[in-house]
Simulated assay, not measured.
Amino acid sequence: MLRARTNHTSAVLNGEIYVIGVDMVEVECYDPYNKSWCAISPALKYVSNFAAASCLGKLYLVGSCAIKYNALTLQCYNPVQDLWSVITSPFIPKYLSAPRCATLHGLIYLIGDNTKKVHVYNPEANIWQKVVGQNQTVPPVPHLCW
Rank of each mutant, 00 (worst) to 15 (best):
T73S: 12
L13T: 08
T73N: 13
Y33R: 14
C65E: 10
R100S: 14
Q75W: 02
L83F: 04
E28T: 13
K58C: 07
Q75G: 01
S97H: 05
V131R: 14
P140V: 09
V86D: 02
S85F: 04
V25C: 09
N34I: 10
C38I: 13
A102S: 07
C65S: 12
L61E: 00
C76F: 01
T137H: 13
K130Q: 15
S89F: 01
Y109F: 07
C65D: 15
N49K: 02
K68A: 08
A71R: 07
L59W: 00
V22E: 15
V132H: 04
A39C: 08
Q136H: 13
Q134L: 15
G15H: 03
K117Y: 02
T73W: 00
T6M: 07
N135D: 09
C38N: 13
K94Q: 12
N7L: 06
L144G: 08
G106Q: 00
C145W: 03
Y121A: 07
L2S: 11
H8Q: 03
T88M: 12
P93E: 06
L56W: 01
V120E: 02
R5Y: 00
L44Q: 14
V47K: 02
A125N: 04
R100C: 08
Q134N: 13
A52M: 03
H8P: 01
M24N: 14
K58T: 10
L96F: 04
K58M: 07
C38Y: 06
